[in-house]
Simulated assay, not measured.
Amino acid sequence: MDDALSKILAKPLTSRNALKLERLARRRLKHGEVAFVADLGIGLARHHRSATEFDSLFDRLVRLLAVTPGAEPVAQLVRMLAAGRPDDPAFDRYVASMLAACRRPEDLTVVFDGGSGGVAVSDELRACLVHELVIRGIPVAEMPGIAGWATSSHWRDHPLAGLPLAPMAAEREPDLPHYSVDGSSHGLPYWDPEERHPAPRLDTRVPTAVETTTAATAAAMATAVADWADDPEEPEGRVEARTFAFADPLEPDAVPGALVALGLDCLVDLGDLPGPGEETAFGVVAVEPAEVWQVLFAAASTGGAYAPGRYGAYGRLRAWRSLAALAGAPADASAGEVEEYVRGCAWYRFGAATPWFHRVVWDLGVLAVAPDRRRLAVLAATTTD
Rank of each mutant, 00 (worst) to 15 (best):
P235D: 03
E278P: 09
T280N: 05
G271F: 14
D230A: 15
A215V: 13
G145V: 06
T204P: 02
A254I: 05
R201V: 07
T213P: 11
G257T: 04
G162E: 00
R172D: 09
A222N: 11
E142Y: 07
V181P: 05
A170M: 11
P256D: 07
T208K: 13
A150Q: 00
L176A: 04
P177C: 06
P164M: 06
A215G: 15
A147E: 08
P200V: 09
L267H: 00
F282H: 04
G237S: 02
W228T: 04
P193W: 01
I146A: 03
G283T: 12
W149D: 00
L176F: 02
R238L: 14
P198G: 07
A150R: 00
G283F: 00
A209R: 06
P235N: 10
M168S: 12
V210W: 09
M143G: 03
A247R: 15
R201I: 03
V206C: 09
D272P: 12
L270D: 00
E173M: 07
D265G: 14
D269Q: 15
T217N: 12
E173R: 14
V206D: 02
A261Q: 14
C266T: 07
A219G: 11
H154L: 07
R238Q: 15
D203T: 11
Y179C: 05
W149K: 01
E194A: 12
M221F: 01
V255H: 03
G162C: 03
V285Q: 10
R201A: 15
Y179D: 05
E240A: 07
H154M: 06
A161L: 03
W155L: 09
A247W: 04
V284H: 01
A241M: 12
L165C: 01
A215E: 15
T243H: 08
A218V: 10
E240T: 11
P232T: 05
H186W: 12
D182I: 04
